[in-house]
Nucleic acid binder design. Sequence first.
DNA 1: CTAAAGCGTTTCATTTAATGAAACGGTGTT
DNA 2: AACACCGTTTCATTAAATGAAACGCTTTAG
Lengths: 257, 257
Amino acid sequence: MVDNKNLNQSIIKAFILLDAFTNDKKEWGVRELANKTGYNKSTVYRLLSTLVSLNVIHQNENEKYRLGSKLFELGNRVSLYQSLITVTNQPIKNVALEIQETVLLGALKEQQVFYLNKADSLQGLKISTSIGSYQPIHATASGKLLLAFSSVNTQENYLKNNSLTAFTQNTITKKNELKSKLQIIKNQKYALDLEEFELGLICIAIPIFNKKGNAIASISASGPSSRFRLENVQNYISILQKGAHSIENSLQDFDSL
Amino acid sequence: MVDNKNLNQSIIKAFILLDAFTNDKKEWGVRELANKTGYNKSTVYRLLSTLVSLNVIHQNENEKYRLGSKLFELGNRVSLYQSLITVTNQPIKNVALEIQETVLLGALKEQQVFYLNKADSLQGLKISTSIGSYQPIHATASGKLLLAFSSVNTQENYLKNNSLTAFTQNTITKKNELKSKLQIIKNQKYALDLEEFELGLICIAIPIFNKKGNAIASISASGPSSRFRLENVQNYISILQKGAHSIENSLQDFDSL
DNA sequence: CTAAAGCGTTTCATTTAATGAAACGGTGTT
DNA sequence: AACACCGTTTCATTAAATGAAACGCTTTAG
């Protein structure tokens, strides 16, 4: 790895700017972005102008900036996920229809859960987790599940290098508690998130195995606690499992992500 | 628009590098990329290192570089297209199954055709046009179709500012010829590309209308001329039209793209 | 109707960072 | 054992990014 001092500062700044454009805040002005990032407004303006000239960012009629088609184009070229997305589109959609909640496909990536694909429920109340986003391992069903099915090395490495931040009063914050929870999850072959990341949000995750028997991804259903009944867990799981098997049958040679 | 001299050169170089990662060439080495772009290999190395540190590019075990998850993440945040893609996934897939050729969803963007979504045929011989890519208006079925259904202003603006480059011996290169062709296309409500962009490649496109009656997108089928029979045009069109109607029914309030 | 405050944009002297040639250390090949 | 090729690092030179202030414009306030 190259020394930190040798990294190109303009590029880093450009991507920090791009990261400010989220689903919750899609549009930014120059001064606004300068305040948010701490960069000089001239710098922000020039960086944005450059990105506009490359179609990485578009400028609205109201002068506000938003993400542009070049990112869409490049995002669609990221080959690692293409086949996995194609293969999972239909199965997770079917699960979402049957389960009537948002369905997400997750994978471990850099000590976090990375969401690869999503099928929205048709319900009015939807969760906002978006494709391509990350969430903490210890506070999510997908995260705990995937960690539970990881190697002992991966687990210990994770526990050593991460502090378990509390997001709600239900978040697991003690490493010993998480460790024994992982054992339970592996035995019961599913994981729950009972408002551990966000109050009012419940989630169930089960593993997707490749032919070598490794859990390479998770399929999960998320919905508001108001709709969730603990006695229906087995029902949710059996629907998710239909989806998981359908995906597993289509999978060819994914070892990991 | 900002003066060209004020654009950030590092960012431009970074995106020129990223653009080298195509579906046909997904992996690059440092020297290889340096040769391709004309940049010094030290520069390429440092740019790549920066992009790796940002997860914009990943490095394989064999030291080769490829596009990374940050682009996937950002690409999925480009909001302009999200709902249109969700709405069209299933219809174009159905069309692809029935028509047995690659189906593309196109829209006009900056005097070019921009492909928003794609459903592959199951045939061995597939076309390589990818989501997010651009093609010239005058040499494609989708381009000619969308231009034909554009306003007179848009048409004349296009004809004024673009020269009609020949890609094959069949490409329309005379502006008067294109102009009269547009009239025909608008009347018959479909457009053909008979090896006008790439030899051996045939394409049929029909419009998708919004509720205001504007053609906001095209749906097209592309395949090798060896499989294509002119007498089947009406059959292709009726299958495409089923897909178009299905999309039109799902569309809510897209005026343009 | 004018003043003030907001915005994106441009300017220009100053500073900081990107640059390229060459060397380095590793791997695989002849 | 010699060579060729790779990604990587070094360091003096050069070129480009930077920030404060001013600009022109639009929107809001008095």
